[in-house]
Design a protein around this nucleic acid. Structure first.
Lengths: 124, 124
DNA sequence: TTGCAGTATTCATCTAAGGGAATATACTCG
DNA sequence: CGAGTATATTCCCTTAGATGAATACTGCAA
């Protein structure tokens, strides 16, 4: 029952915000810290949790660890991520996260891998 | 964050099977026992869990307690139940549950409320 | 090398949850 | 009423998970 593992990843508020952000862009740990305004250990552990369950992959870029969604997602995950994105539109928390994400992406330092892995975008 | 509550209900295998069955028909506790082949206490507790979180409602019909999905579901729940149904098609566990459900519905005793509340069907 | 930034891990604590045995409750029928 | 059926609850145990403080690790730059 693969599905249960997905929902286990979805069933924590912090992880849900992380996953939602990941549907938009790969991000490094410190970005999550800023956007979610949560301590480093908390973010790092939730990312580990996701990685251990195959819901996220990490690549190193210098000091940064860039997390993203797995390149190949099975149908169940794809469907549920889509559903999450739909649902997120009606919850202000996710809206605020996206807004913060925009601010960050427009700001100074950006590991190159974020853009090579994800959205096209200007380097700083 | 209403969404998290939904995923908390979804993140256990037994509950997921229960919810999936409920998308098809209201059912009483003993039906879940038979279909899922799990002990009464286990079923009963998971149903309580769902009820306490507004994911199920119960009405008494004589000795039976008939559980069903709430009549009014918000958009998030509706979307996720739909997603669950889609995903369920690719997992044999859910398929077997549905088959068992069919057997039960064709068999002898049926509390009236199951049909008044849910699928049209012949009373025994 | 040293120092530092970014990240991960360890240790400890607390709480929620899952599970089962036994018991209690609610209702029906005779 | 008493017996039986269906369901809920209590008690107990065990484990997973969430969190934070402190510490360790990793790679870069001077």
């Amino acid at each position: 029952m693969e599905l249960v593992r997905i929902y286990q990843c979805f069933c924590d508020r912090t992880r849900l915000r992380i996953l939602h952000l990941l549907t938009k862009s790969p991000l490094c740990v410190c970005h999550f810290q800023e956007i979610l305004n949560e301590p480093q250990v908390k973010i790092s552990k939730h990312l580990s949790y996701l990685k251990n369950r195959g819901m996220a992959v990490a690549v190193r870029e210098g000091n940064w660890m860039i997390y993203s969604l797995p390149a190949r997602k099975d149908a169940e995950l794809t469907r549920n991520l889509k559903c999450l994105q739909d649902c997120a539109q009606s919850d202000p928390v996710f809206g605020r996260d996206l807004k913060q994400l925009g601010v960050l992406q427009r700001s100074s330092c950006q590991p190159a891998a974020i853009f090579s892995a994800g959205t096209r975008g200007r380097r700083k």
